[in-house]
């Protein structure tokens, strides 16, 4: 199943720029992009059209009934292109949670991440707006991660107030800064677990400034119960975690770990050459929030005691 990433947020939050940056980043993955809305700036449409992504205009909600819903047909069209990932740019007035249902239920795709862009200069005003206030707040609630754009346009004081306001009202995820509409590819997209992809290749200065990652490798399998317990207690600063693990009670089988925001899956996968003998996990989060040392310690605690000899090659 193709992983589906939803980019939500109100008009002007920088969704299209983010997607353009995704399309042009050298990640080597084939992306299909569904554009739900072209926002206020027509030029965005041209930018997207010049990349490989496919664009289809999608309608919000339904007028009288759902029979004319074009969403499914558009999804099928991009699924047929067999991309590595599908990215949906939600309309500025869409509730990303509703689009997420498609990711959870449409044949051939799987919900990967819901990233909600937040315009730092206008979010608080919009959240109190008569027409869109309630919608904007719902959009915030829907994000596995909130990406804060345009923070360079407001003062430090305003940034602090904004962060306080966001922290007080969002439960799922911390808001992270991004600049120039760009966030690490590995954060937004599930990029696979091959060894070459394990370490975030992304070292652009902006990303380095705002994001950090932990690479944990151990040749020993993990203790299933301890690991799952640790996993459940990871801080919300873990925006994404991915990798392979083996467990001491079933060391012949590798499991693929995918965690985005609070959503987590751990699935047994067929044997392949690039699977580690023990565990290999990458964790991405905001530089100012992710306690990499504590996470490494959490993973070390998960290593099954006294099993090293079993799987050493």
């Amino acid at each position: 199943m193709i992983p589906l990433t939803i980019i939500g947020g109100y008009l002007g939050a920088g969704k299209t720029t983010l997607i353009n940056n995704l399309l042009s980043a050298p990640h080597g993955r084939r992306l299909a992009v569904l554009v739900n809305d072209f926002g206020a700036v027509n030029i965005d449409r041209d930018l997207i059209a010049h990349h490989d992504g496919d664009t289809i205009a999608l309608s919000n909600g339904c007028i009288c009934c759902s029979i004319a819903d074009a969403f499914g047909a558009a999804l099928d069209k991009v699924i047929a292109l067999k991309p590595d990932n599908i990215v949906i740019e939600a309309s500025g007035v869409a509730d990303p949670a509703k689009i997420a249902y498609y990711g959870q239920g449409w044949p051939g795709v799987r919900l990967d991440a819901v990233a909600v862009m937040v315009d730092a200069t206008s979010i608080r005003r919009r959240a109190g707006d008569k027409y869109v206030g309630e919608l904007v707040q719902r959009q915030l609630d829907a994000g596995d991660m909130l990406l804060l754009s345009k923070t360079d346009l407001i003062s430090r004081d305003e940034q602090r107030t904004l962060r306080g306001w966001l922290a007080a009202r969002t439960v799922k995820s911390p808001a992270v800064d991004i600049r120039h509409g760009s966030a690490p590819v590995d954060l937004l997209l599930e990029t696979g677990n091959r060894r070459s992809e394990a370490a975030p290749p992304d070292a652009t200065p902006d990303h380095g400034r705002f994001f950090t990652s932990v690479l944990f490798e151990d040749h020993r399998p993990l203790d299933r119960a301890v690991f799952i317990d640790e996993l459940e207690n990871w801080p919300d600063a873990v925006l994404r975690a991915k990798g392979f693990v083996r467990f001491s009670d079933d060391a012949n089988r590798a499991y693929s770990l995918q965690r985005v925001g609070a959503r987590c899956s751990l699935e047994a996968v067929p044997r392949s050459d690039d699977q580690p003998a023990g565990a290999r996990i990458v964790i991405i989060g905001p530089r100012d929030r992710l306690d990499t040392e504590a996470l490494s310690e959490s993973l070390r605690r998960s290593v099954a005691v006294g099993t090293s000899a079993l799987v050493r090659r």
Partner: peptide
Amino acid sequence: GHGEWMMAPEI
């Protein structure tokens, strides 16, 4: 419960 906008108010 809440409704939906068919078009963004600005648009």
